[in-house]
Nucleic acid binder design. Structure first.
Length: 216
DNA sequence: AAGAGAATCAACCGCAGACGA
DNA sequence: GTCGTCTGCGGTTGATTCTCT
């Protein structure tokens, strides 16, 4: 109940996709658009569940996917976004054109996580491992979601934060913050990123609401 | 050259929220 | 307001590839 029955069907294929299946899926989506994933497999002549089709399209077949190695800028961006958002891979992916949540998630787990650990940082909190896991009370109200004094903790409290922020082609939507985009003296990173809901923002510095005004 | 272990990545699973009847 | 369905997300797994001994 409540769960999609599509994946429970016994006559659906599982495992790696074949070239033929890919071609069918691409052809169908090019002809009809993404539309309803549940009905897509049948319409496209695929013995797959809609979920599987969607995943394949989103993570592998989409024409706008970048693929290839992550750049240094993307790497920094992921670290910064993760410091702010945690494991919100889809939100992070939305800020990295051509990258998928799955790709970023894998990259995080295989590369960045290890790199942070190698630097003596907790990949979950982005705090130094040996410095204790408790973050200061001042940080809890901040926008970074636990930055401490780390360089990679968004660095939004400094006037020159925008200068530190990777504003490369890999993140075209990241724009310098307007003056109003601040929580007191602390610049809310969410505003930079264009988040519309409070969900993505851990900023609690402004009880009367987000002074930076989430758009939407 | 072969085997073992590590690393990488595609795909699956289950859950939660959104949406419509 | 409730229930059922669908979509999307995050965590996890397993197969494949790479690297080291």
């Amino acid at each position: 109940m409540g769960r999609s029955p599509c994946c429970e069907q016994v006559h659906t294929n599982k495992g790696a996709w074949t070239r033929e299946e890919d071609d069918k899926l691409i052809a169908h989506i090019q002809a009809h658009g993404e539309g309803c994933w549940r009905s897509l497999p049948k319409a496209a002549g695929l013995l797959r569940c809609g979920k599987s089709c969607r995943l394949r399209w989103m993570n592998y077949l989409r024409p706008d996917l970048k693929r290839g190695n992550f750049t240094e800028e993307e790497d920094k961006l992921i670290v910064n976004l993760h410091a702010l958002l945690g494991n919100k891979w889809s939100v992070i992916a939305a800020r990295l054109p051509g990258r998928t949540d799955n790709e970023i998630k894998n990259y995080w787990n295989s590369h960045i996580k290890r790199k942070l650990v190698g630097q003596g940082l907790d990949p979950r909190t982005h705090l130094p491992l040996k410095a204790g896991v408790r973050q200061s009370s001042t940080d809890e109200g901040g926008c970074s979601g636990g930055g401490g004094d780390l360089d990679l903790s968004i660095s939004l409290r400094l006037p020159h934060a925008a200068a530190n922020w990777p504003t490369t082609s890999a993140s075209p939507e990241v724009v310098p913050a307007p003056p109003a985009a601040s929580c007191g003296q602390t610049i809310c990173f969410c505003y930079h990123l264009g988040f519309r809901s409070d969900e993505a923002c851990s900023c609690r510095a402004s009880p009367s609401g987000h002074s930076h005004g989430h758009r939407g």
